[in-house]
Design a protein around this nucleic acid. Structure first.
Lengths: 161, 161
DNA sequence: CATAAACTGTTTACAAGGAAACATTCTGCT
DNA sequence: AGCAGAATGTTTCCTTGTAAACAGTTTATG
């Protein structure tokens, strides 16, 4: 018994016998459980990289948008500016991200990847974006497509297919 | 400007112009954004109740399964036992949940709702389970059904339709 | 029976994220 | 030019959740 401390794999029928009622159809509840599931997949597949999902997403988006303003990145990724400050500082400390303050507007911070950062993204992009569905695939590829399509619509991200 | 501090409603095209690349199709990323969205809906609709989603889900499931063992509840709801201890203590302190330790096995804790707890669930069940889709519904009812169906399948919760 | 191991809940220490106040810089208005 | 207010990032404090060790209880095993 190594992983599965979260589900604790007891799976004693006692647990599955618990009636969830209509909360088992509540979107919020299902989203939370799904995220726990994906989080587990991520760590089983990628913990060796010492990089968390949120950190990689930042790296990846800076890679695609060099010079992006820190606050705009936070808003796009739906993290608070305060939290983005902390995350960027960590990535900067690891030598993956560089911050530059333009002289014509010294409030804002532009973000770039360092050479190391670019290499990390290039080498690990496929692994980090595809870790789901390498596990016990309960969804067919078609269903997975459908799921992401619906989620994108739910959060209003349809524009850029 | 009152809410929408999360999205910060700047919505300056600068933000939407940021290219998300393939991370915009990553299930983990979409789940996280969806959860932020649902969380926002929840607070806009139900913050006055001074009860968080996780707390209500516990109350609701105890209501459906009186006497449920605390650890089994934690496992079913996918929260850590340590965290369940804290949550139950809060609900107990608010007079909504009662803990009983059976004499024949003094390790375990059985959970029941108090009279206040039962009343709270009965009175607010509909509001707490239906707060989504009272907002800017981006999904049709059929799409919402489809979405929950896929999420249930993804987390292996199909058995009990 | 006695002791080792497992189970259950709790405590403690810590990491992650959010809210609000803050410091600095820029913009707009007069 | 000068000042009020907005924008931007940062800091500080607090809440929430996790991990690991712990205490009490029960089960299994010799």
């Amino acid at each position: 018994m190594s992983q599965a401390e979260t589900a604790e794999l007891t799976a004693s029928d006692e647990v599955e016998a618990i009636d969830l009622g209509n909360i088992g159809r509540s979107l919020g509840f299902l989203l939370r459980l799904s995220q726990v599931e994906v989080f587990g997949m991520f760590y089983r597949a990628l913990s060796r990289h010492e990089m968390k999902p949120g950190e990689f997403s930042i790296l990846y988006v800076i890679h695609l948008n060099p010079g992006v303003r820190q606050g705009a990145l936070a808003e796009r990724l739906m993290v608070k500016r305060a939290q983005m400050t902390k995350l960027i500082r960590v990535l900067e400390g690891r030598g993956l991200v560089a911050r530059t303050i333009p002289p014509d507007n010294r409030r804002i911070v532009h973000l770039h990847l360092t050479e190391d950062g670019r290499r990390f993204v290039s080498e690990n992009e496929r692994a980090f974006l595809g870790y789901v569905n390498q596990e016990t695939d309960r969804l067919t590829p078609s269903e997975a497509d459908q799921l992401t399509r619906l989620l994108r619509k739910f959060i209003g991200l349809e524009g850029t297919p």
